[in-house]
Simulated scan of single mutants.
Amino acid sequence: MATPNYGYEKRQKELAKKQKKEEKARAKAERKLNPSTPGLMPGDPETDMASLERDPPSVPDEPTKNA
């Protein structure tokens, strides 16, 4: 009976891991260059955390009679 080649298995596992990591990095770079949702652009006052910290949304202290 042939003995298992653990070195080969390990190398194949490492190559698969490396390829997956490269694919994720490529997809991330592509998303950064071509954002699919224009509402999530940096600097957008609706989604930008820095703008929300400077200008927090106004919330009335007391409930209104109409609502």
Rank of each mutant, 00 (worst) to 15 (best):
M1Y: 12
Y6V: 13
Y6Q: 03
Y6S: 01
Y6E: 04
Y8P: 00
K10H: 12
K10R: 11
K10N: 08
K10F: 02
K10A: 11
R11A: 10
R11H: 09
R11C: 04
Q12S: 05
Q12L: 15
K13Y: 10
K13W: 12
E14T: 03
E14V: 08
E14W: 02
L15N: 14
K17R: 06
K18W: 02
K18G: 00
K18S: 12
E22Q: 11
E22R: 15
E23F: 13
K24N: 14
K24Y: 12
R26L: 04
A27T: 07
A29N: 10
A29D: 04
E30L: 06
E30T: 08
R31T: 03
K32N: 01
L33R: 09
N34K: 11
N34V: 12
N34L: 13
N34C: 04
N34M: 07
P35K: 09
S36G: 06
S36D: 05
T37G: 01
T37A: 15
G39M: 09
M41D: 08
P42T: 12
P42V: 08
G43A: 13
D44S: 11
D44A: 14
T47Q: 07
D48G: 04
M49P: 06
S51F: 00
L52M: 10
L52Y: 05
E53L: 00
D55R: 04
P57D: 10
P57S: 02
P57W: 05
P57R: 11
S58I: 02
D61Y: 12
K65L: 11
A67F: 05
